[in-house]
Amino acid sequence: MRNGGEGRARLLLVILIVTSLFLITLDLRGVKVIEGFKQGTQTVLSPFQRAGAAVLNPVKDFFSDVTHLGRTRSQIEKLEAENAALKIKLLNRKNADGQLKQLEAILDLAGTAGYKVVNAKVISHGSSQSFSQTLTIDSGSNAGIKKNMTVLSQFGLAGVVKDVYPNSALIQLASDPAFKVGARIAGSQQIGILSGRGNRSASLQLLDNSTTIKVGDVLLARGSVANRPFVPGVPLGYVSQVDNSAGAVAQTATVRYYTNFSTLGVVAIVVSGPTSDPGDALIPEKPRVAPVPTVTVTVTPSPTASK
């Protein structure tokens, strides 16, 4: 009896393992059934994600404030001075205002380059259990979004459309380890490949071994054939560190993305690229140092001083 039970358990285990391997094989061979299954799941899930995003936005803001407590201490001290009613109002409006600000900046960027964009709200950030960096937006094929379209943030490149569903789309962030984009250095026009690392930094591999790069160099997207997946001229980031390892075939560098992926609330999807390459027109302005007024004190001897 015991042997029979063990035999059945083993048989069950073997059947399940074979089924899993069968599923992996089907997916690697690109069978459409699996793709359809995933699309169906996302279609069902997106209303829940929308609802979750709407309900949890104030909570997210609260956690964001707690995370940045040290950096925003002075801001918090100011807020403490305000009355309670104003605080509640501010909390409710904060999210909408932040998104509006992001949207304004994105439209500025898209307008300068002549990109036709569709704006979308982020409704879900992907889990990191699979070591991938993705997010889901609330617009999909019904809004004209297609696979392999460039996704912009207010600062530059945010990612690329990986999958599209009727009312939502999955975005592969530029920080994803599998993400790669052709880049050129503004000014010198040297070209290379930028790869995501799982965080805000990325690695740049130059293609020409005779060229050099320096810290502070700005990187822009080179653009793809027919503007997909990447439109040309999108700001990517700047060189934060140059790796000078002896024996390397071509120079490599660490790049910091302009986009802060953890604060993305609104993004724009480029549905139509520019008619001409915008060149270096989208390079963000360098932050200006505000002049500090100098106080000059002149000491004049008092006429009433004792002799």
């Binding site: 992996i24 997916d27 990191s128 991938s132 993705t134």
Partner: peptide
């Protein structure tokens, strides 16, 4: 089925 799964379908299952 999660959208954040980066591997082939069946990897997490196995």
């Amino acid at each position: 089925l999660s959208q954040s799964a980066s591997g082939p379908f069946g990897q997490w299952t196995l």
